[in-house]
Design a protein around this nucleic acid. Structure first.
Lengths: 119, 119
DNA sequence: ATATATTATCGTAATATCACGCTCATGGGA
DNA sequence: TCCCATGAGCGTGATATTACGATAATATAT
């Protein structure tokens, strides 16, 4: 989308954005919620549970997989999907820190408001 | 984008997706981090701090505002932006719950694996 | 009234997303 | 061997995003 200027941001900011973006669609929220209830499950189970076609689900799974939040283990003719615990917790911590560090209720997050910059 | 099937998801899932999507770009991550350090600041300050044009920043601010995460208070010819504490905390809780409820390390999140569905 | 500073908005171009149907590769059973 | 089921992947059309310059809108200062 447009000339992406992603190089100008820190790896931490980019990682945060990747995790957030992956969760930035209701279908993908529903998918991770469903996966969490089952420990692991097949693509077909998700197709049955959500009102979307198989190919659409497959694409959403791909995006979640690209972000690292889920994994797919080949199991004969099927692929068993599950949340990747390691990355999930990394994302949880990263986003948790963002929300904590940017909490406007927390005075500690603020710089002393340098006069030179506000004039 | 394509026939959006958003009606088929719960309000909670949609809200989560809206918050996550708003944070799904490094520039918007950088913007909220910057805002958090200053309590409130002008659009021009952000333009000076980030390597993006004024119109691009303005659009990112608009998306964050649409998601409710930030607010803009008109102050003469300027607009002073700040994180909306109420919505920020609502998003923090919603995403925190998602990460907690979908944590694969937590057995309590799982259903008893009905035989009829896994056969 | 005119000029300046600040931010929003429009038009644009390139790219990404969403949803679908169709096809393809693979493994299991008749 | 020939199907069927499963799920990945391609191509499509519609829509959204990203980024920019240019312009418009607003409020203050001269």
């Amino acid at each position: 989308m447009g000339a992406s200027k992603i190089d100008n941001f820190t790896p931490a900011q980019i990682h945060l954005a990747v995790y957030a973006k992956a969760l930035g669609h209701p279908a993908r929220i529903a998918i991770v919620q469903f996966l969490a209830q089952r420990k692991a499950c097949l693509c077909g189970d998700i197709v049955n549970a959500l009102p979307l076609s198989q190919s659409t689900i497959s694409q959403h799974l791909k995006e979640l997989k690209n972000a690292g939040l889920i994994r797919g283990n080949i199991d004969g003719p099927s692929v068993s999907y599950c949340i990747d615990e390691k990355i999930w917790n990394r994302a949880k911590r990263a986003l948790g820190n963002l929300f904590e560090n940017c909490d406007p209720a927390n005075e500690l997050n603020r710089f002393p408001e340098p006069k030179s910059m506000t004039v």
